[in-house]
Nucleic acid binder design. Structure first.
Lengths: 188, 188
DNA sequence: TTAAAGACTGACTGATCACTCTATAAAAAT
DNA sequence: ATTTTTATAGAGTGATCAGTCAGTCTTTAA
């Protein structure tokens, strides 16, 4: 048993249930089955732990998406892959996805290094630039397109988790909503 | 000087800057220029204060929107009014809007009563039902349409605040993005 | 004018929490 | 075999903070 991973897993579970403030480091240690001091051996501060957890989750998501996109596909297909797989991943890893959102609206966001931030957005940035270069998008700023895509995805995710649907129905909605957002941002 | 309002104003300012956890009640009291105990005279707990602040802000927003929509307008126009005015309001009341988002991703959301929640969404619910009844929308579930509208609005807001634009440019983007979302959800 | 109610104060408290410290055991390096 | 480094433990600590309390001031009402 890798204690560092135990700590991260326990922290994720508790943060999602009780929030950052609502989960003391002592409870994290207990849940992870390690001593109080061990937590601080691996992470200097509680905040370090939070940020490390965030970066780790983002890395996992990124790695997963990278494994799914096929470089030989057309841009639309690659975009659809990213979109759909992000949603599938989010549905399977509910705690992780909820944690990401929680983190993004917390004061801890500012503690993510520029380097890590760049890593975490590179994939999207590349695809978007490709679309711009190929003149596929409506004349909107890149940032606006990116934000619109992101918030659409969050919205669909929110809908999917708050309604208990069969996986075929989920699939259907994911496909349907991709068409909607794709039509919104591309020229016709 | 109304002490209760002073406390709410101070709390808003500090919560936005330092987060819920990062602002002790003692600092709120000091910022408001009242004694520590006075805060607890008006609000039984810190959480009560937070929820009261949220409900108050939501009420203000709702009141503002209600004052802007003209009942005689066509549905599309009324929708556009709600959309645009929400964004204008959010741009003027930045702290308030940020607080709403912060609150929505916090464990405190669950403390809003069903009654208050209903009040806060009635306006949107009515307009949406009207659209459904008039068969204007694509065959998507009401909840999905509502979520899509909401997240689109959040996305555009995020873009507007993170880019420093002239007010004519802002106006332009608000108009433009309303067309986009309207096309997304309505039949053609 | 006086009594009651409500507003307001700020020192205080009990609990909690992030983090430290000392100690020991295990593993790695020499 | 011995030293050094790393992992782990858990009791302890100082600070912080939400909420209390006992009492004063202010307003209202009789």
């Amino acid at each position: 048993m890798d204690k560092e991973k135990e700590i991260l897993a326990a922290a994720l579970k508790l943060f999602v249930e009780f929030g950052f403030h609502g989960t003391p480091t002592s409870k994290i240690a207990k849940e992870a089955g390690v001593a109080n001091g061990t937590l601080f051996h691996y992470f200097n501060t509680k905040e370090d732990l939070i940020v490390a957890l965030y970066n780790g989750i983002k890395e996992n998501l990124n790695y997963y998406l990278l494994s799914k996109v096929k470089d030989e596909d057309a841009l639309e297909m690659r975009m659809k892959t990213i979109y759909s797989e992000s949603l599938y991943w989010a549905l399977i890893h509910r705690d992780e996805f909820f944690f990401i959102q929680q983190f993004n609206f917390s004061p801890h966001v500012s503690k993510v290094s520029e380097e890590d931030k760049e890593k975490q957005t590179r994939l999207y940035a590349c695809l978007l630039m490709e679309g711009i270069n190929n003149d596929m998008f409506k004349s909107l700023s890149v940032d606006l397109i990116a934000t619109l895509l992101g918030s659409h995805l969050y919205g669909v995710h929110k809908y999917l988790v708050s309604n208990d649907l069969s996986s075929t129905k989920q699939q259907e909605i994911i496909d349907e909503t991709f068409v909607l957002i794709w039509q919104m941002i591309t020229k016709n």
